[in-house]
Design a protein around this nucleic acid. Sequence first.
DNA 1: GTCTATATACCGATAGAC
DNA 2: GTCTATCGGTATATAGAC
Lengths: 188, 188
Amino acid sequence: MKGSRLTIVDAARRHIYHNGYGSTSYADIAHETGLGKGNIQYHFKAKEDLLHAAVDQQIQDIREQLESWSLDCGTAYDCIERFIAMVEKNAKNLSLHGCPMGSLNSELGKHERRLQDHARAMFDLYLRWLEARFRSFLPRKQAQARAEQLMVMAQGASVLAHAYEESQIVRRQAKIMRQWLHDVCDQS
Amino acid sequence: MKGSRLTIVDAARRHIYHNGYGSTSYADIAHETGLGKGNIQYHFKAKEDLLHAAVDQQIQDIREQLESWSLDCGTAYDCIERFIAMVEKNAKNLSLHGCPMGSLNSELGKHERRLQDHARAMFDLYLRWLEARFRSFLPRKQAQARAEQLMVMAQGASVLAHAYEESQIVRRQAKIMRQWLHDVCDQS
DNA sequence: GTCTATATACCGATAGAC
DNA sequence: GTCTATCGGTATATAGAC
């Protein structure tokens, strides 16, 4: 049995991912958790607090994910391919709801720049981790550029797949990313 | 002196692009145009009508843009590079507000799938136009894949540039797109 | 066509009973 | 901790005066 607070944050993450932050209300979370609206507001006085908690938990998940990849994978190449495999594995959700990281940043970037500063930290985690892997076989500046390029491909695939509600777009782009990664390694 | 209706649609396009559809109200458009709220609602009974009109006008703009590119540019290669040049030229706006086409589709895809069906038509226009240019030197299936890949890069660059409010990301990716286009032509 | 006024609903936030 | 009740603000939408 987990505490109310964690239940609320889980529901908030899901609802924000599926409907966006602006279309997420206390009433929605109350309905989804079965708790009263006042209870949600006892734990999170302001709506912004709810978002910060949801982002914090997601950041924690990403940290653990990247750590486990670093341990599991042998070479830097395998690590980066693991990232691509993650994108491909989530093809269905990406086509249905977009990327949880990208779509949240897009929404908050429009008119909640202060909150977006926090959401951007998710991008930082992935980018710095990818850059560190690329640095095993590339100079610093090139490693940075390659990490950025891979993230651009992943985000672009998510946007297009979501627009067309077509998970095959993600799978096609994952294949292209693998070929690209292979070529990048060859050239080094 | 242009009519009220056109004034309203222009303001709606700008406001929706800068703030998102969900955060655009009749009062916002009234304030931005100097017209009364009731006047806006006389021309557009439902808020959805306002979005449809804004999207329709943007579709018209895209059509004219693509037509003029087709006339101006000599080779198919030049046409495609013109698309890349457009992305690069808009780097500043993309970093400040995201891509008008991508961010609108992302928002509507979350909880307004019906309206998103209309917004997706903008993607269709660019993708079909790009595919037609690639077909000058590639078979149908490959041309389709290349058009999709280029759009993925453009959208990904927009998302990342918007998240970091950093227009240089778009410029770096435009350079990569040009190199990619060059390689694609070479291989054919 | 343009405006004011109003109906109705939902939101975030707060106060207080249990 | 959990809930109900309520306030103030704002949204879409409608009715009607000019």
